[in-house]
Write a protein that binds this DNA or RNA. Structure first.
Lengths: 209, 209, 209, 209
DNA sequence: AATGAATGAGCCTTCATTCAT
DNA sequence: TATGAATGAAGGCTCATTCAT
């Protein structure tokens, strides 16, 4: 994610030494823990610092203000997510459309689900944040990765690749979010996931995939 | 929506007289306005009361605390949304699956889009809220409505109606949210919507619809 | 003093009812007490509120921020000072230059000295403040008052009244401040005061007074 | 200036080696720069150190705390000022009263005005400081210098030299401060300065000078 | 001797909620 | 019943000072 983050949201210092990296990670982790344990409205700088085992002052040495912390946290998360999806897309290059779709959905689903509590909590942390740019950049990155993948399938002949791609992404991302936000029973989740694969596949076949 | 709202979130008094209804509506409206104009983090009870033209004290007569107000606001919104979707489902009873799907998507999409700013703002207002029960109830209500509709189509023979129904709902609701949260260009939105209809339809046909 | 105070320095509400006036006065008094007892760098909003016997919240109902409080305090002081000097000037209208000078110096000196601790403390409170406008307005008001007075003396024929006036004011105001900032023994102060009168008088005579 | 500065305000080490002097000067200079560029309330130790090109730690080696730095800075300034005035007084020894007065006022005025921004900024830095001793010592030093000068004039026969001297100093110092604090137009300043000379002279003549 | 990351007390300010009028 | 002034806990953030390296 190399969007130029809004100036004022930048971290104060780039953690270069091991020491710093450890601290910053501790802060990130603490933020998630507080979010998990207490909710957004109890996410205070003091609480985060305390849980991270550092002083508020130290925290402010790395993040100029609370928003910057949340911004960076979201950035880090979206980066991780994007990397995982991109890896799958590359790996599926040239494969059959059917496995592409299954892999894409699996990868995204797993990434979102393996720590679904964190996912949920990050959504909530984003609300007080102007992270449109972040989301936009993430979306664009995903667009590129999946479009390239889809186009590489043998026999793929989409009349409008971009539209098909955008549709698939919106449907997949949207559905995943909806499913886990509703906190459905795991078996139902698994079933819906299968159906989602089937649905996307039949759609792509109809569209020229 | 008749989930028993968590006790402490109940409005203090049921508005029975005209006077009360008017006041409560003014408060709801004011809440939305403040949310739109200033954002969640500037949504204060004082500001809402002021905009509603009543005193804070009066506001506390109708809502025992801020959360109750937001809870009720979301409740009202989901009620409205549910009613619109239910109406469409009833109207589509016995029609062909194809028109069902198109109508469902259209109804939901319109409801979410015609005042997309309000929609967005309500999402944000819900973050600090324990509105799971609300969402759960809304979902169940939708489930019932669409399941009944889908089952009423001539020739409909779903192996697992509940699963198909849950899938459709997750996909439609999820996709709509994803599309408008990304704030895509209107033409793209329209195109994706058409694709979504096609996708759902082809899925339903394959599933026995 | 009717300079338009910088917007952001205005008091939040004009104290109209007795109740409010009392509160505001208590806050002003408390500010001075804290300043006196603890010094500028220990002048905190909490401390002021506590001493005034109100809560911080209440204080912020009358003053949007600390600076506004200090600004208002200085404004009030300069108003009082200006009024006293103006009164003397009016009273001395048409009198002899000699009594004018003596009266002016006496009035100003008294005003500054009778609570010299407060005077000193207000100077210090002004440092963190952008009160140039205030001081400017005060100076202009004094200029007008003394110029009118000086011109009204029988036989007064100043070649450049404005210059003479400005000189007298700078000399008198400056000297007073210097004397009491150095905290000289009272007898010395009294003697210097007499000398100052003599000096101004001989100057004015030479200048056409 | 050899007042025994309050113990706790002493610099931690007397700068003896070249290295130290350079560093200390850099710190003084940086302090002034920060004061000029950002104002008292943004004068932080970190900022000063940074601007001086040393670490905070190093700064604390030379000044045990912030106040000591400000104290030393004021001390240095008053020393410089005193030296300049003393030099003039010596130079005017035995000259006519008229040139004495003109020279004294000129010297002081110039010293204060040639970098009026610095002067102003130093006043502000002194507010949080207990620098009475400093000011007292400066005043005494000035007293001695000007008294000796005034007494050395041919024909000088003051009934009360000390009083005359104290008066002249208070008037001159006070007026200068008043004039430049009000930031008057330069031409007005120049005129007042001339008037001030005239006024002092006529006073001294009347007093036996 | 120099460095600068870490500390944490303490500051200013907000705002949900109460209650006397 | 309606009002809105008063409350005060709690939050975000700064910065003088220390001390391990």
């Amino acid at each position: 994610m190399d969007v130029a983050a809004p100036k004022h949201l930048n971290a104060r210092k780039r953690p270069r030494q091991v020491r710093s990296t450890v601290t910053v990670d501790a802060i990130f982790e603490a933020t998630i823990q507080v979010l998990l344990a207490e909710g957004v409205h109890r996410l205070t700088t003091t609480r985060v610092a305390e849980r991270a085992g550092v002083s508020v002052g130290t925290m402010y040495q790395y993040f100029p203000h609370k928003q910057a912390l949340l911004y960076a946290l979201n950035e880090r998360y979206l980066d991780m997510l994007a990397e995982r999806v991109e890896a799958v897309c590359l790996e599926q290059h040239g494969k059959a459309t059917a496995t592409m779709v299954a892999s894409l959905i699996e990868a995204y689903w797993e990434a979102k689900t393996e720590r679904s509590d964190i996912t949920r909590v990050l959504y909530s942390s984003a609300v007080e944040l102007n992270n449109e740019a972040l989301v936009e950049a993430f979306a664009a990155r995903m667009d590129r990765a999946t479009a390239a993948m889809l186009a590489s399938a043998p026999n793929a002949m989409y009349a409008d690749l971009n539209l098909v791609n955008a549709t698939i992404l919106s449907v997949v991302f949207g559905t995943v979010r909806n499913v886990f936000e509703r906190n459905m029973p795991l078996t139902v989740q698994a079933n819906i996931r299968k159906e989602l694969v089937a649905m996307c596949l039949s759609y792509l076949e109809g569209a020229g995939g």
